[in-house]
Design a protein around this nucleic acid. Structure first.
Length: 274
DNA sequence: ACTATTTCCTGGATGC
DNA sequence: TGCATCCAGGAAATAG
């Protein structure tokens, strides 16, 4: 399930492979769910466009596009293709003769002869067109301690829920919320507004550290996640609480607990997190 | 204005 | 072996 580090890894991998390429044509499947923009709008925004850049914004992958005709230099994007991978979405660069995976919802044919395919079994992913996409919340890797602190002021919701709220921070998902809270020594059910200045400082630091470490390791490969090159990440080997219910805490040896907060499984150490 | 809950969707795991 | 049931979860929709 791609969160910030996985999406960052995928976007970087895609950038090295498709930036500078030109989109010749687009095929969209008949399933309407993955399309947030009308199919015709997506097709016309993509076709005959040069891919200027591929980057991550929150959990979204943004393709900056400009008309393929005209001078290459100093091109400015005139449209953005936004891909959200949801739970099970993937973007694969492959040869046209590569067998079509089940649940392929979009195929983008490139001038280089390759194809960029969007595959998503569970169909939680979304495709859309934007002029200038902006994440609804703060970027977790850039946010200052002051702004981070202000996000949670007056919020009665559990800190775990607040971390997952994309309008506050864009990019944090279930794995990294649990891991950051463990590293900061804070229980997931704590009311966001109840966190002390010192706890907020620790959480701010832990969240950035855990996200950066995960990016360095290519993300967490659980379920069927692989990056744009089909390679697995290794951060799952560094999980200290996520998916470790009943297993000994790596710090105190006590059993890791799993509870449900806002319908999401949440893992923590009752002794190390207060 | 917030917060909590439900819904979407499929494949893999589990249980009888 | 087969079939039913449960569970995973990001984000939008709905309810409180």
């Amino acid at each position: 399930m791609p969160e910030l580090p996985e999406v960052e890894t995928i976007a970087r991998g895609l950038a090295t492979r498709v930036v500078g390429d030109v989109i010749e044509s687009v095929w969209l499947g008949s399933k309407p769910e993955p399309l947030k923009s009308p199919a015709a709008e997506i097709v016309s925004a993509l076709e005959s466009k040069n891919i200027l850049d591929v980057r991550r914004v929150g959990k979204h992958i943004v393709f900056d596009l400009a008309p393929a005709s005209g001078a290459q230099a100093n091109k400015k994007p005139d449209a953005q293709w936004i891909v959200h991978l949801g739970m099970t979405g993937s973007l694969l660069v492959c040869a046209p003769q590569t067998e079509l995976a089940k649940h392929t919802h979009a195929i983008v044919r490139l001038a280089s002869g390759r194809e960029l395919r969007f595959v998503d079994p569970r169909r939680f992913g979304r495709l859309s067109i934007n002029e200038k996409f902006e994440a609804p919340g703060a970027e977790p890797l850039d946010v200052s301690l002051e702004k981070f602190t202000a996000l949670f002021r007056g919020r009665k919701t559990p800190i775990k829920s607040a971390l997952l709220n994309q309008k506050l921070l864009s990019g944090v998902g279930n794995i990294y919320a649990d891991e950051a809270l463990f590293r900061a020594g804070i229980r997931p059910r704590r009311r966001a507004a109840s966190l002390t200045r010192d706890e907020l400082r620790r959480l701010h630091l832990s969240l950035k550290r855990v996200l950066k470490q995960a990016i360095r390791l290519g993300g967490s490969s659980i379920s069927d996640y692989v990056d744009a090159n089909g390679e697995e990440g290794f951060f799952q080997l560094k999980h200290r609480v996520y998916g470790r219910e009943g297993k000994p805490c790596l710090v105190c040896k006590g059993p890791i607990k799993r509870i449900v907060i806002a319908g999401r499984s949440s893992h923590y150490c009752p002794k190390c997190q207060q």
